[in-house]
Design a binder for these strands. Structure first.
Lengths: 361, 361
DNA sequence: TTGAAAGCGCTAACAC
DNA sequence: GTGTTAGCGCTTTCAA
């Protein structure tokens, strides 16, 4: 120790004044080992052997200097940044916000930063983001929402996905997509079946559905569950479409009310259901006295709206966390399958659904 | 051209097979210039002169190869990654979600990625995030919410802020903080004054306030506006505190109803006001017939709740965008002031406020 | 106006 | 078990 004291002290001072932040060579110098050894001693998952005494010395020096590795320099070698991205259609939508919350928590507990990219439901914006992400060499990308089946979109997305796979990045989907990616998603079809059966069991026959855009597979899966059950019951199905926004839900409900007179409406998302509820109130119709309404997702905050919405609970935060876990397993090579893991959903019967008019007397 | 055709073709092929993604040296080779020149020709804000012919050749080569610079390699030199972070208390809260939306849009239009860090209202989580960000050398950090005045928090935050400043990163606040940072924020005090005056003008005297945590300056500013006006009118002020969540707002309203019987309540955020409204409904009280309620923020989605909430409009998306712009100006050295820019707010009188009971006959 | 060379801080062959 | 030596892809002196 005393032998190297003088140069070490000089180095310490110069490191402090020159760049403020200590770098690996400062640690190596302090511990009187080579750069390589310092690197190996500091990296927990480096298999190369390092003697306990040496490791202890390096660790001590690192602690003393408050050394933190430079993520960029590391990334330049490892070819990946310790960041995962989550691509959503709209951060403002509680459904996505909740997924983001779950994913962020899971990622940060593993030392990963989370980038949230909100496309505002514009495919081109989404493509721009994904290009950016692939160039930034993020470790993984989680797609929280669905994609388009359109040719141009698919081709560009395919290019970026290939590029990401090429540098060893992972991709996970949390909604049904045409791409063959590892996926964790809610059991949309089963959920839709549950609500429709519930409505049928209450005695409704004129059950309409407000679905999302036909371009999104999530819409189609939820429709499928509805159609299956309606057909099985010999009831006529009516599907109108909106865009998964609250305003869209309100507009769709208005159309439904003008054209048909459903006694119950299954809305493919709570966000849209909120709009449907608002429109019914605006027209002076009671829920569930005049019209029963059921949603899908069970977004947070529902406990504060009136009447309390019957819906299908989707474990959003869990989905986000599962996506991160899947990503990590992929990165570690433990699970590179492209299978879809379905997460169970649950019908939450609350106040917005009841027996139809004719039967409540 | 023909002279270099053969080697160029070979290089092109090898670049394609070896690493798939073209790098700067591929472009330089194709354009038959040095690495340096290629770099200069490609960088729009590099002042070093490059002849038009050369630049054109380099640009053509870059386009042909679909070259995109590696952000990590660039960051290793420039010491900053082209990413900005936005630290929020809760992504799930529409107030923050909306700010994030505005900031993300503004950042992406400038080629910056946005990292969203949600602390879930836990100061330690927030500190962990900021440390991570400082190590990642993000270009800037935007604090959407307030901070603590507590010693440990302030010291650690100060350390990270210094470290960020040291590598040339910028920090901007969108809420009042004890730190001396550039800030863009809503005129909280003026907004609170407006609502209180509105309630007073309607004839209310027993006007209570549900505020946020005492540790947050936003709460204090909004309280101040309320207190000022109440005092000026010679009315008794009552302030109860909640935590800026919907559930907290509901609980605070329940307490208020039990202890006092206010004819009007000013709630320091719409998110809490939603809870207050739910609690009033639960207790069978009419709004505004029995109690008037006013919020703050004008979060999106309010148009679908009933009764339509009287509130103070805060330009959230604009605030997010202004934060990004301020950050950019700081990074470019155009504006390194630590002044606070106040954004005007506006009273939105809607349905949840009316004359008090005694006066409506 | 162009280019050669020296790194940014770190990791990974490849020796010893 | 430890060290030497090359780079990762880019920017930036410095020299021509």
């Amino acid at each position: 120790m005393s032998r190297t004291a003088s140069p070490a002290r000089r180095e310490r001072r110069s490191a402090a004044t020159r760049r403020k932040l200590p770098i690996l060579s400062d640690v190596a110098q302090q511990a009187a080992v080579s750069l390589t050894t310092a690197s190996r001693a500091l990296d927990p998952d480096n298999s190369h052997p390092v003697s306990d005494r040496t490791r202890a010395r390096v660790l001590a020096a690192a602690t003393r200097l408050a050394y933190r590795p430079n993520p960029m320099a590391r990334a330049l070698r490892t070819r990946r940044v310790p960041t995962i991205a989550i691509v959503v259609h709209d951060v403002t939508d509680p459904y996505f916000a909740e997924i983001v919350r779950g994913a962020t928590a899971a990622a940060s507990s593993r030392g990963f930063l989370t980038v949230v990219c909100s496309s505002d439901r514009d495919p081109l914006t989404e493509l721009r983001y994904v290009e950016m992400l692939s160039l930034s060499r993020v470790s993984g990308v989680i797609f929280a929402g669905g994609g388009l089946d359109e040719a141009h979109y698919r081709r560009r997305m395919g290019d970026y996905a290939r590029s990401i796979a090429h540098y060893g990045g992972a991709i996970v989907a949390l909604a049904p997509r045409s791409e063959r990616w590892p996926a964790e998603m809610p059991d949309n079809r089963a959920g839709a079946r549950l609500v429709t059966q519930h409505l049928l069991a209450l005695g409704h026959v004129r059950i309409a559905m407000i679905s999302g855009p036909a371009t999104l597979r999530t819409s189609r899966e939820r429709e499928l569950g509805y159609l299956e059950v309606m057909e099985g019951a010999g009831a006529d199905a009516v599907v109108v479409r909106a865009d998964f926004t609250t305003a869209g839900g309100a507009a769709a409900m208005a159309r439904l009310l003008a054209d048909r007179s459903p006694s119950a409406v299954f809305v493919a998302s709570d966000t849209m259901a909120l709009g449907a509820l608002a429109e019914l109130r605006r027209q002076g119709l009671g829920v569930p006295e005049d019209v029963s309404v059921a949603g899908f997702d069970d977004i947070p905050g529902l406990e504060f709206i009136h009447p309390r919405l019957t819906t299908v609970h989707v474990p959003m935060a869990e989905l986000g966390a599962a996506g991160v876990q899947r990503l990590m397993r992929y990165l570690e090579g433990d699970d590179t399958s492209t299978t879809t893991r379905l997460h169970a959903v649950e019908l939450m019967v609350r106040e917005s659904t009841g027996r139809p008019r004719g039967e409540d007397s």
